[in-house]
Write a protein that binds this DNA or RNA. Structure first.
Length: 165
DNA sequence: GCGACAG
DNA sequence: ATCTTGTCGC
């Protein structure tokens, strides 16, 4: 795995942060940034929920449908669903919501809380976990998300207050 | 029933 | 997300 390209978008936020309604706040900016990519990826890792959502369609799922692209949703804490908490490093526990498994809790590092991995769009329970694990590179969060987050921070510093992660 | 609640 | 001191590990 190696870095290929990065793009970003700066615009005015026109919707407040309301858990459950991410798409309205960050949808446009995310799509704009995606459209600027010269190399379109085969899959998107989104820092938000997938199908573990009150409407079974969190931001990761929503963006996957809009862009017609497979997605995986990864967050630092659960929004919906129930799961046993993995204690041992490398341990994964199934995350259930709406009567079926929709993701995992993965204890990446022994000293930090597990990350939440959820099916977004056109990915499976099995593939979302496998792909995420393949993207781990020593940090709690998978490398693509870590780099994207760092990139956002850099641009934010250059342009001042105006973005949204 | 109440509190908590992806970024 | 944002603010923000001191502390810990590679």
């Amino acid at each position: 795995m190696e870095f290929v390209e990065r793009t970003f978008h700066i615009g005015k936020i026109s919707f407040p942060y309301i858990p459950g309604y991410f798409s309205f706040r960050e949808g446009e900016g995310t799509i704009r940034a995606y459209q600027k990519l010269s190399n379109k990826p085969d899959l998107l890792m989104i820092n938000a929920c997938g199908v573990t959502h009150p409407a079974n369609a969190g931001f990761a799922s929503h963006i996957g449908v809009v862009l017609d692209k497979p997605t995986i949703g990864i967050t630092k804490r659960m929004f919906c669903g129930r799961a046993k908490i993995p204690q041992k490093e490398n341990e994964a526990q199934p995350l259930y919501d709406g009567g079926k498994q929709r993701g995992w809790l993965l204890k990446v590092l022994s000293e930090t809380k597990p990350i939440v991995i959820t099916v977004g769009h056109r990915t499976s329970i099995k593939s979302c976990l496998e792909i995420t694990i393949k993207c781990l590179k020593g940090s709690k969060m998978p490398e693509p998300l870590r780099l994207a987050h760092r990139c956002a921070g850099e641009e934010k510093k250059k342009w001042g207050k105006s973005s949204g992660t």
